[in-house]
Design a protein around this nucleic acid. Structure first.
Lengths: 131, 131, 131, 131
DNA sequence: GTGGTCTAGACCACC
DNA sequence: GTGGTCTAGACCACC
């Protein structure tokens, strides 16, 4: 399910973190689901176990997964996310940066918003609480 | 006008690139304006001239500024951006990534859109040509 | 395989870029081949690693080589070249300049063409697809 | 007749040298013709006289023009060019470099030759000596 | 091991 | 004055 681009400029461990979060965000992986063990995933992806380990540590730090000693690693209930305030600030800042780039690419507000809508269809409507 | 965060994970030269692009996007710096010389900015920011130079070279590659021999460095007319196709693809991908993060932070589509609108007020409406 | 002329007016990093492109154009280095590491080449050529690094970054920007984190740097498949339109225009302009020089050297069209043919034997015939 | 691009990456004095040689190669300026004085050309082009002076020195070194004390500067008879052997070697080398670039741009020998022919129409046919 | 970033500072070309 | 190139060498992230 995870596909690496060895030639990408973003480090492999970050690619794993991002894609794992994407799978969870899209409900392809749900709370309680077991994620592959470090050994399993590293041998599937043909990469160093340390790299997978680093990714899982980051996911755990972000509250996405949890390792239970001797049982394995599992997707967590979506809950109050760790470091929410900081991460929201970071999100705001990155959106700001993307807007600057859009401006330099000559995009209008409408075009940018369309691109946002395309990307954000996975988000809930928000009439009822986020599940 | 440029403020560095020495402890940030993004390199200094990138911070300069981003902030310079932001100043241009917000029309605080306009086509024809002279940007500080390499020496001047490096001594203001208390960093090495090479670091400023690297930032300026990147900005030149992106078509934001232009160096005129012995005269200095100037903001360029906004024109056909370099490598537009690739950069638009990258923008789309980063928006996708931010949406995933928004989902993990429990945001709804409406909340995310609001944050986008906040960030994107600098973009033109596009009803009339971009001036 | 790379030979520098310290006294040349063209900078060392450009000499490396040109010669590397020549090796690739002549199929002496092929897609997938590993190029020497920055440290290795710099110690072979007795120059600073930063200079090699600068050359490699330029080659990467031109789509000739690719760096894979922690693994090394490799020759890329020849593909759609970056900034093809601009580079073709530059090529046309430089050919124009060389023709002017040939005229000043008293060369005839036939002599110039002969010199061109000598230089261009590496180019494919184009009857069949490239490769 | 001479048009400078302040924003070009090639220095102004080189642009003057090249364009002057182009005018001569195209027979727009002929042997015996007076070229503008340093002061005149510098005030026409709105540049520093030193820059024009440097260009004229280079043109004189190449045997294109000659300054006659108190009379002015004139286009020379095309004669045995100065440093012909070296300049032919340099020409050969630059053609080699352009071929490498053409190869990287995916051009075939036929396409490259066509571009050469386009550029070299100013050269004589060579049935009779180059005048 | 690999490449990327940064500093401190020299030297040079151009104007 | 301006920016471009290069060296010597430190420190870091990634694998």
């Amino acid at each position: 399910m995870i596909q690496l681009q060895q030639r990408s400029s973003s480090p492999i461990y970050e690619q794993i973190v991002e894609q794992m979060k994407e799978l969870v965000a899209k409900d392809i992986m749900k709370a309680g689901d077991k994620v592959p063990s470090v050994r399993e995933l590293s041998s599937t992806l043909l990469i160093n176990p340390n790299t997978v380990s680093k990714a899982y540590q980051e996911l755990e730090r972000q509250g996405v997964i949890q390792t239970i000693r001797g049982k394995g690693t599992f997707v967590l209930e979506p809950s109050v996310p760790r470091m929410a305030a900081e991460r929201i600030e970071a999100l705001r800042h990155e959106l700001q940066r993307l807007t600057v780039e859009a401006k330099h690419l000559g995009m209008t507000k409408a075009q940018f918003r369309e691109m946002v809508d395309e990307a954000s269809h996975m988000l809930g409507e928000g009439y009822h609480a986020a599940d």
